[in-house]
């Protein structure tokens, strides 16, 4: 069962799971109606169901209805609220409460034996006094003034982590580097949509970015494995912010750091864009790169497919 199946990552994971040899079935869950689910994915082994994961009753009906009927063994929980600007209870319900509910019900479920949660590099605190390479035991972003999206991601991540080793269900939390593609909630993608990308003057941190293909590969490996724990999923592209801007064929311009939050706030207000500088303030100053050693050891995952920068450059221009 794949939640968030209508997101670019959810769709790609669904496609990859269907393409595997064997007679496995995929139950894809999305908020949109079935008509909105890409027909390119149509396959006899694919079942799509619309569900509102913000509602406890829907989750219960889903798990003890369709999921039980299809003998779902593995849950890939990829649903999260995409807009970084939206806040409030509904957002929290999807990001956190749905995760808690899914975890709780999975443990009592007769067929579910594995739960793969797709977390995000945002959960880590970026602190230049710590190592640039972030291992799984790196401090998390637990500051009270962090944006809701970050706080929600941390809470959801920890919600899954707290159950590890306490139930028959085997949990894997994949803390993934950012996949800079459209419609995925990628802050960097939205940042690059401006012709002129403003950077904090005097800083050019290293970023690590993940391609969709590598992200899917990591998820499929986690689905097929029984490994329990937190695993960082880095990408094949490690480069400075200035190089990211150049490869996306945008112009970079240094601006004193304190001006960036109001400037990008004004941009969001006038153009309705998603990028929030306050959410990216630390990583636009200081390098933070996921260390994928554990994923390599336990999942045999290695980032091998770099981003297609020409495609990204074309996409951000649209």
């Amino acid at each position: 069962m794949v939640t968030g199946a209508t997101t670019p990552l959810g769709r790609s994971v669904t496609r990859a799971l269907l393409a595997r040899p064997g007679d496995g079935k995929v139950l894809a869950i999305g908020a949109e109606s079935g008509a909105g689910f890409p027909s390119t994915l149509a396959a006899p082994a694919l079942y799509y169901e619309r569900a509102d994961l913000t509602r406890s009753r829907h989750i219960r009906s889903l798990l003890y209805g369709s999921a039980k009927r299809h003998n779902v063994e593995v849950v890939v929980h990829a649903a999260h609220h995409r807009s970084a600007r939206d806040v409030g209870d509904a957002v929290h319900a999807l990001n956190v409460r749905s995760t808690r509910e899914l975890v709780s019900l999975s443990e009592r479920h007769p067929t579910i034996r594995r739960f793969v949660f797709l977390s995000h590099v945002d959960v880590y605190a970026v602190d230049p006094r710590q190592s640039v390479l972030i291992t799984e035991d790196h401090p998390l972003e637990l500051k009270g003034h962090a944006p809701q999206r970050v706080r929600d991601r941390v809470e959801a991540d920890l919600t899954v982590c707290t159950r590890m080793g306490l139930a028959d269900v085997k949990y894997a939390v994949l803390r993934m580097a950012e996949v800079p593609i459209a419609d995925s909630g990628s802050q960097l993608f939205d940042y690059l949509r401006s012709r002129v990308c403003l950077r904090p003057l005097g800083f050019d941190p290293m970023l690590n970015l993940l391609s969709l293909d590598d992200a899917v590969d990591a998820v499929v490996r986690a689905v097929d494995s029984d490994v329990e724990g937190v695993l960082n999923i880095p990408g094949a592209d490690t480069l400075p912010l200035s190089r990211v801007i150049a490869l996306a064929q945008r112009s970079g311009f240094g601006v004193p750091g304190p001006l960036l939050t109001p400037l990008y706030g004004a941009r969001a207000s006038t153009r309705g864009l998603e990028f929030r500088y306050d959410m990216n303030h630390r990583r636009f100053h200081f390098s933070a790169i996921l260390d994928g050693t554990r994923a390599k050891e336990l999942l045999a995952y290695e980032p091998l497919r770099p981003l297609n920068w020409d495609a990204i450059a074309a996409a951000v221009r649209e």
């Binding site: 230049p128 006094r129 710590q130 190592s131 640039v132 390479l133 904090p200 003057l201 005097g202 800083f203």
Partner: peptide, 25 residues
């Protein structure tokens, strides 16, 4: 790393801040 320009220039020239994790890596 907190110093604008200096932190970036040092990092490009191979300087790392002395955290245990960087050292280990």
């Amino acid at each position: 790393p907190f110093m604008p320009w200096v932190g970036t220039a040092f990092s490009r020239a191979g300087v790392v801040s002395g955290s245990r994790g960087n050292f280990r890596h």
